[in-house]
């Protein structure tokens, strides 16, 4: 790609980002949002996060499921347990990464 095309892409991507992120902030006045939809949106954040996480934890690069004893899978399970026990994000990360590193080096 030429430098001009790359800069056009960058400007275009900026417009796409502003457009999608403020879509209903701009159109909300003209597109009424039913209470039911607003209620449904409460579940959106957790669903979006799990949709980002699940393929990373459960799949190997290039497709296919990981083995039951994969360090990523076990570390994620340890992290869930740590979060339930400590309610601290940083403690969860520390315990999870310690498990991940230990399993990769000696697992």
């Amino acid at each position: 790609m030429s430098s001009l095309e790359i800069w056009a892409t960058i400007v275009g991507l900026t417009a796409v980002t502003v457009g999608t992120r403020s879509f209903f902030l701009v159109l909300g006045d003209h597109v009424p949002l039913p209470e039911r939809v607003q209620h449904a949106l409460r579940y959106a954040p957790a669903c979006a996060l799990v949709a980002l996480i699940a393929p990373e934890v459960l799949m190997v690069k290039g497709g296919g499921l990981v083995a039951w004893n994969d360090p990523k899978l076990i570390a994620a399970a340890v992290a869930v347990g740590a979060m339930l026990a400590t309610r601290s994000m940083l403690a969860t990360m520390a315990i999870g990464m310690a498990a991940f590193t230990a399993l990769r080096l000696w697992g």
Binding site: V50, K72, A79, V80, T92, F100
Partner: peptide, 18 residues
């Protein structure tokens, strides 16, 4: 394995939401 720390942070973020 720095990239996996990102995923674990997301896991921690998700747990209280479910």
């Amino acid at each position: 394995g720095l990239d996996y720390a990102a995923i674990l942070a997301l896991v921690a973020l998700t747990v209280p939401m479910v």
